[in-house]
Amino acid sequence: MMTTTKNFCFCTLAIGHAYRLMAQDLAQDLAKYSPGTFFYILTDNPQDFASQNNVVAFKYYQRGIQRCYNDKRFIIERVFSDFSTAIYIDADTKIIDNFPDELVFPPGVTAVHENLIEHITKYRPESLEMIKKVASKLEISLTEAQWIGEALFVVTKDGGKGQEFINLWGLIATYAQLRGMHSGEGNLMGLAAAKIGWDVSLNDSWKTLNKLTQHLDASHFVKRSRWEQLKRTFGYHYRLNKERLLALRNFDFYYR
Rank of each mutant, 00 (worst) to 15 (best):
I96V: 14
P100T: 05
P107K: 06
P107T: 07
G108A: 08
V109G: 04
T110S: 14
V112D: 13
V112H: 13
H113F: 13
E114C: 13
E114K: 12
N115H: 07
N115S: 15
I117K: 11
E118G: 01
H119K: 08
Y123L: 10
Y123N: 13
Y123S: 10
P125F: 03
S127G: 07
E129A: 15
K132C: 12
I140R: 08
T143S: 15
T143E: 15
A145I: 03
Q146R: 12
W147V: 04
I148N: 07
E150L: 03
E150V: 07
A151K: 01
L152G: 00
F153E: 03
F153M: 12
F153V: 10
F153C: 09
V154H: 04
V155C: 08
K157F: 01
G160S: 06
Q163N: 08
E164N: 04
N167Y: 08
W169F: 14
I172H: 02
A173E: 02
Y175R: 09
A176I: 01
A176L: 08
Q177Y: 04
L178K: 07
G180M: 03
H182T: 12
S183K: 05
E185A: 11
G186A: 04
G190Y: 04
L191P: 05
L191V: 07
L191I: 06
A192Y: 07
K195P: 05
K195F: 13
I196K: 00
G197E: 09
G197K: 06
W198N: 06
W198L: 14
D199W: 00
V200A: 01
V200K: 02
S201M: 03
N203A: 02
T208I: 14
N210D: 04
K211A: 13
L212D: 00
Q214Y: 11
Q214G: 01
D217K: 10
A218K: 07
S219K: 11
F221T: 14
F221N: 12
K223M: 15
